[in-house]
Simulated scan of single mutants.
Amino acid sequence: MKEAKMKIWGSLRRIAALSIVALGVQATAAQAQDYKLLEPGTLKCAFTGAFAPFSMQTSDGKWYGLTNEVFREMANRTGLKLEYVITKWDSLLVGLMADQYDILCDTMDITKERQARVLFVDGWIESGGRLVVHKDSDITSFDQFKGKTMGVLVSSTWAVLAKGLEPGETKYYQAESDAMRDLADKKIDGMVTDSIAAAWAAEHTKMPLRTVDGYLSRIQKGWAAKKDRAELVKALNKALAEMVADGTYAKLTKALIGYSPAPAEPIRSQLN
């Protein structure tokens, strides 16, 4: 009799365990459906490629950098496989709206204009626009740049900021690295770019560049999804907040630039 009861209890426990697993699978499937991913379980993330120190590539093709390290950890905590899609900067938003990928994981500034079109993950990094010149340049202030030749990334906020310096000519680039090389070769007189990127370039690439004192802007950057991806953005927000709280974010970013650039007051997602 006792043995029969034990068998019954054992069967009940197995049924209960299987029920819990089934519920977990159902919950995961429902959550994946809420994310509205192009491919269930896979987060297709688009960016423009190399832009140190945000995204860099090793000799064997692996991506690393501020963006890659932080976003990869967020995807892991959300239970999603990360898949990169490389595209041109001025095609990022077009491709997003055309459902060519799920989210943009490039270093995109959070602006009111962009917030009207896309849904940003909470601001994950704070930086700003700086004027970068050749190390030998005699330019020491913004007003001295009037009439000079400027280089900027096409369709970027830097291009807008650069106009305020009244350059005589502006050259537009598809990649920041190309503008930096031209500046190092004195083919242009200066460029406007991100303060973190400028500091990294001057320190790690040994290019003869320096930043002019003062900021042209202060900005937070975020990752953008379509407006109907609210559940995905909520999940990524949760993962990011946990990383900041448990010290993972600081550990990942300090290893690359020596400090944590997390915003003290992040710009929050405009969720309905």
Results as ranks from 00 to 15, higher is better:
Glu69Lys: 02
Ile8Thr: 05
Arg218Thr: 03
Gln31Ala: 11
Ala29Pro: 02
Ala224Gln: 07
Tyr64Asp: 05
Lys251Cys: 02
Thr248Leu: 08
Lys227Ala: 11
Tyr172Leu: 10
Ser59Trp: 08
Asp34Trp: 04
Ala116His: 02
Ile257Val: 04
Met191Lys: 03
Gly164Ser: 12
Lys2Leu: 12
Ala27Leu: 10
Lys62Trp: 08
Leu92Asn: 06
Ala241Thr: 07
Gly214Arg: 02
Ala245Asp: 10
Tyr259Ala: 03
His204Phe: 15
Ser156Asn: 08
Pro40Arg: 05
Ile86His: 13
Ala235Ser: 14
Arg229Met: 07
Leu240Cys: 08
Val192Asn: 11
Val160Phe: 14
Leu271Ala: 10
Ala199Cys: 01
Pro263Gln: 04
Ala235Arg: 10
Ser11Thr: 06
Leu119Gly: 09
Ser19Val: 09
Asn272Pro: 15
Thr107Met: 05
Asp90Phe: 15
Trp89Gly: 03
Lys112Ile: 01
Ser195Phe: 03
Asp182Lys: 08
Tyr249Ser: 03
Lys112His: 04
Asp182Tyr: 15
Asp102Leu: 11
Ser155Pro: 07
Asn237Gln: 11
Trp124Val: 03
Thr28Gly: 10
Ala255Cys: 03
Ser55Asp: 09
Gly222Lys: 00
Ala239Phe: 11
Ala239His: 09
Asn272Gly: 13
Gly79Thr: 06
Gly222Tyr: 00
Arg117Met: 12
Thr107Asn: 08
Lys187Leu: 15
Arg14Gln: 08
Ala175Ser: 06
Gly147Gln: 11
Met6His: 09
Asn237Ile: 06
Ser11Asp: 03
Asp122Thr: 06
Ile20Pro: 00
Gln26Val: 11
Gln270Gly: 04
